[in-house]
Design a binder for these strands. Sequence first.
DNA 1: CTTTTATGTCAGCCTTGTTGACTTTCCAAG
DNA 2: CTTGGAAAGTCAACAAGGCTGACATAAAAG
Lengths: 166, 166
Amino acid sequence: MADGTTGGENLLFLTDEQLRKGIEAMFFAYRGFTADPDRILGELSYGRAHHRALHFINRSSGTTVNNLLSVLGVTKQSLNRVLRTLIEDGLVESRVGREDRRERHLYLTKEGADLERKLSEAQRARMRAAYRAAGPQAVAGFRQVLEAMMDESIRAQYLSIKDTRT
Amino acid sequence: MADGTTGGENLLFLTDEQLRKGIEAMFFAYRGFTADPDRILGELSYGRAHHRALHFINRSSGTTVNNLLSVLGVTKQSLNRVLRTLIEDGLVESRVGREDRRERHLYLTKEGADLERKLSEAQRARMRAAYRAAGPQAVAGFRQVLEAMMDESIRAQYLSIKDTRT
DNA sequence: CTTTTATGTCAGCCTTGTTGACTTTCCAAG
DNA sequence: CTTGGAAAGTCAACAAGGCTGACATAAAAG
């Protein structure tokens, strides 16, 4: 930013105008962020909710429904509708828990993993480009601000899950 | 970030794992970002769509419907539904254009401006806190990455609208 | 005068969120 | 063993807010 509006030279930079620009940046960037997967999902008559489920099942393979519920922050009825179609379509496998047989542990099938990869690769490509354009230092700041913007409980959850996959 | 995962010391930082964390950060942060206004809107039986309309009418007072349409990226039917209730409820005023009488120019009424302020102040408070927690340099990076993540056409639009208000 | 543009509106559909009520399964405490 | 309650699933109903398509009107443009 050559106009200095995002520069760090001034400590009294928190004008309402600055904050408004930040708010709009979040709005527009989030649209870009979801645009590529949305296009792919549209062709398959899936929605963003399916993408989110696939993402978090992939990230935390074998997670329970309750677990997924708290991460996604939706009701079980809402998640169930999405999950049911994914299971019916053979993208997700639901296995009865060994220790607690009430629980269902969720896994991606090969087909599910394929779609997840396709979706997340589209999203990663955009983020990779943005990261490259902005540079490493900007990326560090990006992550710091985003983390500070999360709800407390969510941030703890987000930070705790470092690498659940192997 | 003490773990170095968001540090800028390494130029080869674009692992899929890094990108995945960035993707999740966007997801969780956006939830936090919308949480406070959503609570206020829920009590008034308005939704996020109303907030967006109020925001952009406030930002670009006197904007036309077509203008708003392209900024928001929705269909006119979708926007019209929201706009109609805002006008009926006396939050937005629609004036016939002077030069081109087909156009409707949109303005916030006092009530509309009051609600917009209440909503955006809640959102600004969170962003202010996040900015303060992360520091000026992080904020610069945050904005840089977000801008790089927008669609080309949107970014141009976003950057062009510096200060339409006085 | 005709075409195009800006806007509004009706109808209908979809996704994805909600609440509430109910059932089934099954672990664990009494 | 019985029972309470947690986990999960299901059904119904509803709302917000996207979408498409069709159509009406007014006014600008040609």
